[in-house]
């Protein structure tokens, strides 16, 4: 039997070329974050030391984490239960509601940010960390909804009837059957929401108030006064953190969480 034809060598060449060009800036950034020039180039961690000792940067990081945790926690709760409700609902407008909730995926981010800002303005809400969190909830909600929805669609919902038949109350069914089965997808949704919130610039930029700037905003502000190795170090740290989260997300998909009663 003839083996499947292999892709020609030049195809691999183009692929690696494209990947190299794409990742070159990242590599340059990472490398520049650990180098310093005295009379010749030497390896150093001094830029990282600077980052860690920069009070303002650390404050911004803490705010970023706060916003990330708060917004993804709330959107996981709301989005997760919304997905359960949608799956169970016999309401005839389920499809339009689903479509509407996925709309924020396709609405241009700038439009989204502007409309949020004008909404806050109309409601006379003072821009602060709270408005950032609210804004982040609105855009990460549909990601959680989609993740959990996908899992629920794959489940045979007659298991809920089975539990009901065995005498379980609705609350017990939710606690011991439905939630354990969608837990990994909710965890995945949480991580996804956190990731999106952590590196969001545009929407945060529009909705944050004075003194409530997050890490990406801070980075942008600092960049205006010149690209320093210190910024490279910060960016490298953010990159490492994000990549770590993505690995966690991949693990979460394969995770099995056994429900205990």
């Amino acid at each position: 039997m003839k083996a499947r034809p292999r892709a020609p060598f030049w195809a691999f060449g183009i692929l690696f070329g494209v990947l190299f060009v794409l990742y070159l800036p990242v590599i340059v950034m990472v490398v520049s974050s650990v180098l310093t020039r005295t009379d010749h180039w030497v390896l150093t961690l001094q830029w990282y030391r600077l980052v860690v000792h920069d009070r303002e940067l650390i404050d911004a990081l803490i705010r970023s984490l706060e916003v990330g945790f708060a917004s993804s926690f709330i959107s996981t709760l709301v989005g997760g239960f919304a997905a359960i409700a949608l799956v169970k609902s016999k309401f005839r407008f389920v499809k339009p509601v689903e479509a509407l909730s996925f709309l924020s995926l396709v609405v241009p981010e700038l439009v989204f940010a502007l409309s949020l800002l004008s909404w806050f303005f109309v409601l006379r809400v003072q821009l602060s960390l709270i408005t950032v969190i609210l804004a982040h909830i609105t855009f990460s909600l549909c990601f959680v909804l989609m993740t959990v929805n996908g899992r629920l669609a794959a489940l045979d919902m007659t298991i809920e009837d089975a539990a009901r038949d065995l005498g379980a109350t609705e609350w017990r069914i939710l606690r011991t059957v439905t939630l354990p089965l969608i837990m990994t997808s909710m965890l995945a949704g949480f991580l996804l929401a956190f990731l999106l919130s952590f590196d969001d610039f545009l929407i945060t930029f529009f909705t944050c108030g004075v003194g409530s700037d997050t890490l990406p905003i801070r980075l942008y502000a600092a960049m205006k006064s010149g690209l320093t190795p210190q910024l490279s170090a910060l960016a490298t740290l953010m990159l490492a953190f994000t990549v770590a989260l993505i690995f966690l997300l991949k693990r979460a998909r394969g995770l099995k969480i056994f429900g205990q009663m």
């Binding site: 009837d161 089975a162 539990a163 089965l181 429900g259």
Partner: peptide
């Protein structure tokens, strides 16, 4: 009464 379902409907996580 108890029911046996067409596609078993066993709890997959238990």
């Amino acid at each position: 009464f108890n029911m046996v379902f067409q596609r078993y409907a066993l709890f997959p996580h238990l």
